[in-house]
Design a protein around this nucleic acid. Structure first.
Lengths: 111, 111
DNA sequence: TTTATTTATTGCAATATTACGATTAATTAG
DNA sequence: CTAATTAATCGTAATATTGCAATAAATAAA
């Protein structure tokens, strides 16, 4: 069906999955890494840097903006994008605590 | 096109994205969380616990196994699944260092 | 060997994603 | 106002994902 049954999962599970999903594309990872590297830049810079068409980069930026991991500021005819630090740190914590839930002790039951 | 241009990205970007992509579905988050909770269990348990059809759970298990975040051990007619601790910790570090690349200082350029 | 149990695979329908050309805003410069 | 610049949106093609019924495979129990 191609449609996720989100209603059978907790809000926490859906939220974490939706963030992971957005991070689940190399172009979006590359966009984030470049934004961190240069602090802030415009869409056209990312088009050059990454090598995808402008509408494609614009679409990826939209998804990153949707979950709030980046934000854009209008500057004349262009839009200056950068990481949304507050949300970044919140997501950092969410992933950290997700990975931290695994006990450090060895499995005994099987595996 | 629905096809990702992986060749224009670094191996690191593709790897991180592919892990995030697998984590980008609430059913797979739920499977992981249940495996951590009960240490190890079989496919049938997850079908009951999560409420998706057996082939669907089996497919999600396959994707989790593909990136090595879980592993399965044959036990009679059933297969005992659990977290692959070594890979788990490797991925934990990868995500941690990804999130850590953002400097803690304030943006000055824009945003 | 037959039956039961458990999981994987196949095949399919519905929907989502990725990518881009063409076009449309929106703003600035002249 | 007009032209130039920049980014968003629209439309569309190709492919991927999600989910499940039906079936197959693999092992254990009788």
């Amino acid at each position: 069906m191609g449609i996720t049954k989100s209603e059978i999962f907790t809000e926490e599970q859906n939220k974490l999955a939706s963030i992971a999903k957005v991070l689940g594309h190399p172009a979006r990872i590359a966009i984030i890494q470049h934004l961190i590297k240069v602090n802030a830049c415009i869409c056209g810079d990312l088009v050059e840097e990454i090598g995808l068409a402008q509408p494609t980069i614009s679409q990826h930026l939209k998804e990153l903006k949707n979950i709030g991991i980046i934000k854009g500021n209008i500057e004349g005819t262009s839009i200056c994008y950068c990481i949304d630090t507050a949300n970044w740190q919140a997501y950092q914590k969410q992933f950290a605590s997700f990975f931290d839930t695994l006990p450090k002790v060895k499995n005994t039951k099987c595996c």
